[in-house]
Design a binder for these strands. Structure first.
Lengths: 218, 218
DNA sequence: CAGGACTTACTTACTGGTTTGCAAGTTCTT
DNA sequence: AAGAACTTGCAAACCAGTAAGTAAGTCCTG
C-alpha cells in the first residue's frame, strides 16, 4: 500500500523499458529499515548517521541513499514501516474496538516490556519529534490524534458516557500519556517499573472515576 | 553548592586551588545556560551546537568552552542549574510534602502550560537521555527515583496505605508518567490537551482507586 | 530465444559543510 | 602585573549528498 510513494521515483523514465524494482530490493530495503531502527534507537535520529546504518547491512552510505533518497525520507519510511508492522500484528491477533481495546492496551504494555529495542526507538524519536521542524513531528501528532480518538471511544464505551465529554477525552489522553511516560521511566531503570501492572491500575482507576454514580450513597 | 564542580577546572596549574572568577563571570555563565536551554530545547542536545549557543549570547563558541570546558559539561551544568532554579521556586512558594504535594502537582501542570519553552527542553532532553551512554541518563534516572519516592509518600499519605505497597508505588509512577506523557502530547498539539484538568482527573482517579473500602456496598 | 535497450543496485571518490576542542594571543579587570 | 575572559585560527573528524562508473538484472523486439 504505502510502497509506491516511498520509492525515490525512477530518475526520468521517458519511454520506460524496465522500471520495476528488482526482487532483491524489497528485502534489502527491509534490512536497511531494521538497521535504521536500531541505530536511531541507540543514537537518535540527529546523532545516528547513514554510515552507521550502512555498516550494519554491509554497504556504503551512498547505497542507503540510493534506496531512500535522503536521510529524512528514510526516517519517514521507517515510521510508516513500523506502523504497518504494528497494524499487521494487531489485525493478526484481532482488531479490538470499544471497551476490549482497554484490555488490549494492558497486554500491549506487557509485550512492550519484552522488546526494549523497539520501545527505545519509539521513545527516542518521539522525544526528538518535538524539536522545531523535526521530520517526525507530523507523524507523531497524527498518531496521537488517532490514538486519542480510538481510546476516547473505548472509554466512552466502558463508562457509558459520551465521546464528546471532556473528561472522557481527558481520560484517553491520560491513558496514552501513562503508557508513554512509563516507557521512559522503564528504559532508564527496568526494575523500577512494572509497566503492565501500572497501566492496568491506571485504566481501572480512570474507568471507575468516570463511572461515579454508585458512590452517591456514601 | 553545585558550583565548584561545574567549573572547567583551572587549565592545568599543578595543584589547582580555588581561583576566583571575576564578577561578570557568574552573570555570563547564566546567560550561556539560558541560551543553551533554548537551543537544546529547539534543536536537541545532539543537534544543537555550541556555535548556536554562542551566537545567542554574542560570543564565539570557544568562549563558551572557556566557561564550561566541554559541551557535555555544559549540559550537566544546565541540568543542575534548572534543578536548582526549580527547587528555589518551589521553596519560595512552600515546601509541600505528604498529601498536599498532589495538589501542588496539579498546579505545576497548569504553570507548565504557560511556559512551553522549558517544557520543550525538558521533554527533548528526557527523550534523548535514553539513548546509549547519553550524558543526561544518570541525571534523569536519579530524578525519577527521587520523584517516585516523594510522590509514593504523598500517595501513601492520601490513601492511608503503606509506602511499601506496590500499588502505591505504581500510582506514583503513573502520576509522573502522566505528567511527562501529557507534555509530549501538548507540545505536539497545544489545543488537544488540557494538562491541568487531565493531571487532576488522573490523580483523583488513582487516589480513589487506592481508597477502595467504600465500594463494597454496591 | 538472442541481443540490444534500458534500469536497478550498488561503489568509489569527492564536495562543501559543520562539528568539537585546543593553542596561543589579546584585552579587560582587579 | 597577573590572571580571567575572551578572540582568532586551526586541526581532525564526521556528515549528508552528488556524480560518475560498473555489474547485473529486466524487458522488448525481431
Amino acid at each position: 500500500m504505502s510502497d509506491e510513494q516511498t520509492w525515490p521515483a525512477p530518475p526520468a523514465s521517458g519511454a520506460g523499458r524496465a522500471q520495476r524494482p528488482q526482487k532483491r530490493s524489497g528485502r534489502r530495503r527491509a534490512e536497511i529499515l531494521d538497521a535504521a531502527m536500531t541505530v536511531f534507537g541507540e543514537r537518535g535520529y540527529a546523532n545516528g548517521s547513514l554510515q552507521d546504518i550502512a555498516d550494519r547491512v554491509g554497504m556504503t552510505h551512498a547505497g542507503v541513499l540510493h534506496h531512500f533518497g535522503s536521510k529524512e525520507q528514510l526516517l519517514i519510511a521507517l515510521l510508516e514501516y513500523r506502523d504497518d508492522a504494528d497494524v499487521a500484528e494487531l489485525e493478526g491477533h484481532h482488531a479490538p474496538r470499544g471497551a476490549p481495546l482497554l484490555e488490549h492496551l494492558v497486554d500491549t504494555a506487557e509485550e512492550n516490556s519484552k522488546r526494549p529495542g523497539i520501545v527505545q526507538t519509539y521513545t527516542v524519536l518521539l522525544g526528538e519529534s518535538v524539536t522545531d521542524k523535526h521530520p517526525a513531528r507530523n507523524f507523531f501528532a497524527g498518531r496521537f490524534a488517532g490514538l486519542r480518538d480510538m481510546i476516547t471511544s473505548a472509554v466512552a464505551d466502558a463508562t457509558d458516557r459520551s465521546m464528546d465529554d471532556p473528561e472522557v477525552i481527558g481520560a484517553a489522553s491520560a491513558v496514552i500519556a501513562t503508557m508513554d511516560g512509563l516507557q521512559t521511566q522503564w528504559l532508564l531503570d527496568k526494575d523500577a517499573v512494572d509497566m503492565r501492572a501500572v497501566v492496568d491500575l491506571t485504566i481501572r482507576a480512570l474507568v471507575r472515576e468516570l463511572t461515579k454514580p454508585a458512590d452517591v450513597i456514601a
